[in-house]
Design a protein around this nucleic acid. Structure first.
Lengths: 157, 157
DNA sequence: TCCATATCGTCAAGCAGCTTGACCAATGCG
DNA sequence: CGCATTGGTCAAGCTGCTTGACGATATGGA
């Protein structure tokens, strides 16, 4: 009976409180990373670009890959790539093994921006450590990792 | 020295992994609540409306209150109110004590939708309980509540 | 009391980011 | 070889948000 359907019923109000807290923290995190990235000299980027960089970082990706990762159409992903290429954060290379596709890879400036985002994220997490303690934050991350979906990263709304 | 500046330094990569997990969970949560609300018969609403309902629920709010809560201009909040009023989820009442303002309150249908959202949220949290166990989810909620900002609820990007 | 200033809500116009639809080039399977 | 499928882009349109302006009401100081 334990772990059965009736055991996992949660008070709706508790679920809403948990959801609200999670979304508030997520929104705050996004905003503060964005502010940190801007403060480090990358003022021409939005949070969505950061999520794209995260997908491009390990070896590059195609426009279609990026579209799937961001949960948008490939046209939207193509426009986003056009923008970050124009601004010097990435470049298009011929794809080895498929002449239709192009491999989008980060430039030096793209990597610098990625580092800036990591620093900004570490600052925010550092604040959490000050509030909760190191072990608690570690436990938080471990639990979130276990319930994180594998699917595309989507905006909160 | 404990809890000092150098103690709360976090590995940047760890901070990014934690941030990514948090945002992935938040995006997934939002999407699944949205799907649950639609499945319960409220197909003409977007996630943003749910956040508005959360602010309207306890006693109503003005357009300006709502704008601050959602982190948008009051014009945008006004448009959103116009929409939920037109669709029958809320109504405008004269504000007691300020003839300029209007008190936006949920209708019966608005309350029904709020309940649907709570049920959908409880379903998602129920899944987490199945994965982590009840105590772990409770701890998760407690920690998130301690680091949740008081400011406006914002989209993840 | 009277008037200047601030605030509440709305109308109007513009814009940014995404969508749908169409298309060409390259792929790979029968 | 023939042809359906896939990768990427161009073009047009829509939606939700922004900035700017405005009348109506509140508020506070002379």
């Amino acid at each position: 009976m334990r772990q059965g359907c009736f055991n996992v019923r949660v008070q709706n109000s508790d679920a809403m409180a948990l959801s609200a807290a999670l979304l508030a923290v997520a929104g705050d995190l996004t905003q503060r990373i964005q502010e940190g990235v801007v403060a480090r000299g990358f003022a021409d980027l939005r949070p969505a670009h950061g999520f794209a960089f995260a997908r491009l970082a390990p070896g590059g990706a195609t426009v279609t890959d990026l579209a799937a990762h961001l949960g948008v159409t490939k046209q939207a992903a193509s426009q986003l790539v056009e923008e970050i290429v124009r601004k010097g954060y990435a470049e298009r290379r011929p794809h080895p093994g498929d002449a239709r596709a192009r491999l989008i890879v980060l430039t030096e400036r793209g990597w610098a921006c990625t580092s800036a985002a990591e620093e900004a994220a570490a600052e925010v997490v550092g604040d959490w450590v000050r509030t909760l303690g190191e072990g608690e934050v570690g436990a938080l991350g471990a639990r979130l990792a276990r319930i994180a979906p594998g699917g595309p990263i989507r905006p909160a709304w």
